[in-house]
Write a protein that binds this DNA or RNA. Sequence first.
DNA 1: GTCTATACCCGGATAGAC
DNA 2: GTCTATCCGGGTATAGAC
Lengths: 173, 173
Amino acid sequence: MQERRDEIVAAATELLEREGADALSMRRIAERVGIRAASIYKHFPSKEALEAAIISVAFERQAAVFERAEHDLVAIAEAYRSFAREHPHLYRLMTERPLRRDLLGPGAEARAAAPLVGATGGDADVARAAWAFAHGMTILELNDRFPPGADLDEAWARGLSAFTRKGRDKRDR
Amino acid sequence: MQERRDEIVAAATELLEREGADALSMRRIAERVGIRAASIYKHFPSKEALEAAIISVAFERQAAVFERAEHDLVAIAEAYRSFAREHPHLYRLMTERPLRRDLLGPGAEARAAAPLVGATGGDADVARAAWAFAHGMTILELNDRFPPGADLDEAWARGLSAFTRKGRDKRDR
DNA sequence: GTCTATACCCGGATAGAC
DNA sequence: GTCTATCCGGGTATAGAC
């Protein structure tokens, strides 16, 4: 009977994506499933555990998307940005707090990260820098922090060129 | 009698820095000032307005720090990271939500941003990319998102070199 | 400009019956 | 595994006296 568990995670994810983190209460989640809030505790020990399940599924979805852009840093960056724009509340839940890794599905985080590591030639420092850039652009855009007229495509291009051989050649030519 | 107003902002900032965003309630703030929560509404129309005042002061503090690192991107980046590590909860308040610019002190945001724009030679796209990188590194570090052994100094160096002439020369040599 | 009192709403979580 | 009932806590904000 893991089906009910999955159903709760799916309902919670949909609620989060539609209405944001403030709407993600045990009562609202239960309402969507058609049960009472207390019953969720038969499937998850705490709200935190349920959130970790939401995040685990989201990592797997991300991994599936990133793998399709295999080994191309620019394509991965585009997929990263698109995922966040399509699921802004989910993306925030995934990134804006420390991760409860002990509650995540095993390997989920690593699977989501693998394509980027591959695309940066296995250099972990460069991969981290590239991720930081991508996350920074993404979250600042979601939070409306750039000025209204800002050309974000151009800012992305300027930043990404730092992490690609081709980009450096082009800029320094 | 703006003194009381300033006193409230100072008390709220201290409370935020010590105990984090969850502790920042009108009741807790008032307690620190030695008044009742209801009295705060004689000085601020809403909690949001009080938060905006906290952020305005924080921008001015940031501006003062960044100006000391004038025109040197690496020095500004170091100051940026240091500010966030010294005031993590304040930094989160400043960055993790859309800004209520209509409630901020005039020019505060621009003064904090000016040193970075200057250091990137006035190229707004590069300045935005550099800011995104710095924010991404900073917030991911604050949220413990990098692996335990990660060499963040090195990741910072790799990313920053993208935005400096010197860095590019060195890497491509 | 501060107080008391309160309206009004929400949250996570547990006990115990069925 | 679901329910009802409840505990216990918290929050922003307002009314009206002083």
